[in-house]
């Protein structure tokens, strides 16, 4: 741990990097200075609170408290994913189910295979990693779905008019949307180690862990993210596409 030299004073000096972003925004008249300042303040406040909460949870080492953290993370991720599905009915419920199932299956597998232990120091951060990745995947699925139902509106109508069920009429959209949710994870896997040294691995190396051991953890994280984004994308898309139709199997915006 002696490698970690970030202190309050080094953080304050590091704040100069934010000024770089502010200066660029000002010079280029991007009008994002307010967003940057709010973003930075939020990041500092949120992370500080989370740091103290995590310290308490890890120290308490209580199963119920660990599960409570799991629930809070899943609910928050679902709420954020649902915002990206604005206009899709029951987006929160679909996101909640997708994130809950995706996170639970992945976490359970990791615990049962002995990859991680059921202790707050491992469960809480891993839950956060899984849920946030599913959240991003669902957001992409929803965005793709909304866009393609608009773009292929006529085609869906024609398929329905030929007597197709809503699933057959939406099959192309469904496949494209699931793929759009999974694609960033697949793309990032391809460049692992070549372009990026991801957070988990970097964190362990920073903390002085042998890089070969850190890589093993990163490979585990890769498997975990691939599984969880697949599960999350499939569940959210299969629940989401139905919301574009009414009970008479008609497109809702017709």
């Amino acid at each position: 741990m002696s490698n970690l030299t970030v202190s309050n004073s080094t953080l304050a000096l590091g704040f100069s990097l934010v000024l770089v972003a502010l200066v660029i925004g000002y010079v280029e008249k991007l009008r994002i200075d307010k967003d940057i300042i709010i973003g930075v303040i939020r990041a500092i406040v949120q992370l500080s609170i989370v740091g103290y909460v995590l310290k308490f949870v890890i120290k308490a080492n209580d199963n119920w408290l660990t599960l409570a953290c799991f629930v809070i993370i899943v609910l928050n991720a679902s709420w954020n994913a649902a915002k990206r599905g604005n206009g899709i009915p029951k987006a929160f419920q679909s996101s909640l189910l997708a994130i809950f199932v995706g996170t639970t299956i992945t976490l359970t597998t990791l615990v049962l295979t002995g990859s991680i232990k059921f202790v707050p120091a491992q469960i809480v951060p891993v839950t956060g990693m899984i849920a946030s990745n599913i959240m991003v995947a669902i957001g992409l699925c929803y965005r793709n779905m909304k866009q393609t139902y608009t773009d292929r509106h006529q085609q869906v109508l024609e398929k329905l008019a030929l007597g197709a069920d809503i699933k057959l009429a939406s099959l192309d959209i469904l496949r494209d949307s699931i793929k759009s949710g999974m694609q960033p994870t697949i793309d990032s896997i391809k460049t692992l180690g070549l372009v990026s040294l991801p957070g988990m691995m970097s964190g362990l190396i920073f903390a002085g862990v042998d890089p070969v051991k850190a890589i093993k953890y990163q490979i585990m994280v890769t498997f975990m993210l691939l599984a969880s984004t697949s599960i999350g994308s499939i569940i959210s898309c299969y629940l989401g596409y139905k919301q574009f139709f009414n009970d008479r199997k008609q497109l809702r915006d017709e």
């Binding site: 006529q154 024609e158 008019a161 030929l162 007597g163 197709a164 008479r248 199997k249 008609q250």
Partner: peptide, 15 residues
């Protein structure tokens, strides 16, 4: 609805 639309089929102006 799907069974009905197989009996009553609709053809569009610009398919």
């Amino acid at each position: 609805p799907t069974k009905y639309r197989q009996k009553v089929s609709y053809a569009f102006q610009q398919p």
